[in-house]
Simulated assay, not measured.
Amino acid sequence: MGFDLESVAEATSGAIGALVSTTILYPLDTCKTKYQAEVRAQNPLKYRNISDVFWEAISIRQVLSLYQCLGTKNLQSFISQFIYFDGYSLFF
């Protein structure tokens, strides 16, 4: 069992794909979480749906708030997908 460059290349490309998708979809996940937290709080509802959360962030110029903690999520996603694809290419 030696060092397999093809396996590392496949794992890296899978991890980069996960990184791109996480970065693109992270604001949606943040909006969903914020919406769900409000629904469970049992207060008068400020948002009717997830898009209301997104449009509020745009209207008050807080779009970057939707990307809070993105670095940590990207790191987690990159490492987990790298390990997954490396293991997949090792066993199959």
Score class of each variant (00 low, 15 high):
72 T>Y: 10
54 F>L: 07
73 K>W: 05
13 S>P: 08
35 Y>Q: 07
76 Q>A: 15
82 F>L: 08
92 F>H: 12
2 G>W: 05
77 S>G: 14
57 A>G: 01
46 K>Y: 12
17 G>T: 13
8 V>K: 04
77 S>L: 14
54 F>D: 00
35 Y>L: 09
71 G>P: 05
65 S>N: 13
69 C>S: 15
14 G>E: 09
24 I>P: 06
78 F>P: 00
87 G>F: 11
40 R>N: 04
3 F>V: 13
80 S>G: 14
74 N>I: 05
65 S>G: 09
1 M>K: 07
52 D>H: 07
31 C>T: 03
57 A>V: 01
85 F>D: 04
62 Q>W: 01
65 S>K: 07
50 I>D: 02
56 E>M: 02
46 K>V: 12
16 I>D: 10
11 A>V: 11
5 L>D: 14
39 V>E: 08
44 P>L: 12
53 V>T: 03
78 F>L: 06
78 F>C: 02
66 L>Y: 01
53 V>F: 03
15 A>I: 02
78 F>H: 06
1 M>V: 05
38 E>P: 03
21 S>H: 11
56 E>A: 01
10 E>R: 12
83 I>A: 09
83 I>H: 03
27 P>K: 03
62 Q>C: 03
56 E>R: 00
58 I>C: 04
7 S>Y: 10
41 A>T: 06
55 W>G: 01
68 Q>N: 10
22 T>Q: 04
88 Y>M: 10
53 V>C: 05
55 W>Y: 13
65 S>H: 06
78 F>R: 01
91 F>T: 12
28 L>W: 06
24 I>L: 15
15 A>S: 06
75 L>S: 05
45 L>G: 08
71 G>L: 12
7 S>I: 11
31 C>N: 06
14 G>A: 09
10 E>Y: 08
28 L>A: 12
84 Y>G: 05
91 F>W: 13
70 L>F: 03
25 L>W: 06
72 T>D: 11
75 L>T: 07
50 I>N: 01
16 I>M: 11
52 D>K: 03
14 G>V: 10
47 Y>G: 00
78 F>A: 05
58 I>W: 03
8 V>C: 08
87 G>D: 07
89 S>M: 08
46 K>H: 14
54 F>Y: 14
37 A>H: 10
33 T>V: 11
87 G>A: 09
76 Q>K: 12
23 T>M: 12
84 Y>N: 04
15 A>F: 02
4 D>K: 07
64 L>C: 03
25 L>I: 06
67 Y>H: 13
44 P>D: 13
91 F>K: 11
83 I>D: 03
21 S>P: 05
60 I>E: 00
73 K>R: 08
25 L>E: 05
2 G>R: 06
32 K>T: 08
27 P>Y: 03
41 A>P: 03
19 L>I: 02
2 G>I: 07
59 S>P: 02
57 A>D: 01
71 G>T: 05
86 D>L: 15
73 K>F: 04
84 Y>H: 08
46 K>P: 04
40 R>F: 04
22 T>Y: 02
72 T>I: 10
44 P>V: 14
69 C>Y: 10
9 A>G: 13
63 V>G: 00
89 S>N: 10
